[in-house]
Design a protein around this nucleic acid. Structure first.
Lengths: 235, 235
DNA sequence: CGCGATTTTGAGCCATGTCAATCGGAGTGG
DNA sequence: CCACTCCGATTGACATGGCTCAAAATCGCG
């Protein structure tokens, strides 16, 4: 499938510009991305991001949040990870329960990586592969970190570590300003990701707020004391 | 590097036969493995399985146990996974702390996968790649399972789930007999893998023993009630 | 303005961690 | 053969972090 060059710049994409800048892509590769502005896929909030065929498909998030999750037999949810703009995420076939499904947490715009690679030149293809592979290995490393965090950290430390992770990842793609960052999650989401009860997450956030380390309100995290949080989780 | 055909069958390898059988390899691929009997790498107990250069190297375990672990800043250990005969394991460069290092838990015999692939024909190469990739994806899935287990399960359930995992994986490579299986670990290892204190692991094992679900003594697990364990962890 | 979803707070309980002491087996030197 | 030591396994007492249940407050939205 060719890139729809006819739709070139139908949608001057600020999110795409941000992605290009934050991933440090070359001009040629950036141009490949721009040619794809017309094939951006849109998913509404709270939908499952799935692959049509039987093979999983890798997507590249331009805007919005997703999470990897599984619904457990007892009805509870386990959230494995969150993805933000610039992250790749593997959309699996709908029937696949294992290891997880991907769900949008906001409206999401993304590109299909395989489709992107098809229409890129050799050099650009290598570059895109490199960037995506690197991001995937970071995601894998975060899974190891998560195991450590769940095994060894107190509730307070887990919450602090997650906020810290969000802060660092979001700031790398320019989504943090000096007053904080947007976090389109409920505290239940945090609980499901951290293996804690909702009530205890609320208490932990309160403790952080009173300690002046971070405030989470109205879908926004502000008053962040990065060093304080880092010290709290033993960095 | 060519396979050392001169050393053909210097060591009629029962572990290799088991691997060939359990992985369901074709005769041709089995022959490739057999030609490698002479290049089996040996590592003593309690050593780090590392790659010489700067790139990680994939090893294929023929005999013995290893684990992926990290030593945390506070001196405690986090064990991420255990590998048994038939498993691939990624030996990383010595300086790499992240995401983990691989340590032997017994004497270990293994093959270098890249070396193996080099000397295999095209068809055998594809087959070996398929088997190894499949095993790697199972390992990744186990990391997701581990996150669920650490988030949601009680200490008793975590211990039961780990024993169950050992039972199922070992039985797939013929290392379980009707009286149980060998488990070359201390209870401290279990504690480090499960995110529990040593004392509580001991208590949980006692509970399982008294409930007639499993007995762990002298490096051996016996009296296993597989269904009971499965029910306990909510399967 | 009313309703469902989310956040907040309190009370009480239980699982798990920590600390400390003991026990047993395997090696080791005399 | 015995005394000694080390390591792993075991047990008890106690403290506490996090869970559950229940109720109230607040927010978002039609």
């Amino acid at each position: 499938m060719l890139p729809p060059s006819g739709t070139l710049c139908t949608r001057p994409p600020p999110v795409m510009r941000r992605l290009i800048r934050s991933a440090g892509l070359s001009d040629a590769t950036a141009e490949v991305l721009r040619r794809f502005a017309g094939t951006v896929e849109h998913y509404p909030n709270a939908t499952i991001l799935s692959a049509a065929g039987s093979a999983p498909r890798l997507k590249w998030i331009l805007d919005g949040w997703t999470c990897e999750l599984r619904v457990l037999p007892n009805g509870r949810r386990q959230i494995f990870s969150f993805e933000i703009p610039g992250d790749p995420v593997l959309a699996r076939p709908l029937n696949a329960v294992r290891p997880c499904t991907v769900m949008t947490l906001t409206n999401v715009e993304c590109l299909d990586v395989a489709q992107l690679l098809e229409s890129a030149g050799k050099a650009e293809r290598r570059e895109i592969r490199g960037v995506v592979d690197h991001a995937l290995s970071l995601a894998e490393e975060r899974r190891y970190e998560k195991i450590v965090c769940l095994s060894r950290n107190s509730a307070l430390q887990r919450v602090a570590e997650l906020l810290l992770e969000f802060h660092d990842r979001l700031s790398r793609v320019g989504l943090v300003d000096d007053r904080g960052f947007n976090l389109p999650l409920t505290q239940k989401h945090l609980a499901d990701a951290l293996g804690l009860s909702l009530v205890h997450v609320i208490r932990s956030l309160k403790t952080l707020r009173l300690a002046g380390m971070a405030t989470f309100r109205f879908g926004r995290v502000s008053a962040i004391d990065r060093d304080g949080l880092a010290a709290l989780c033993g960095r």
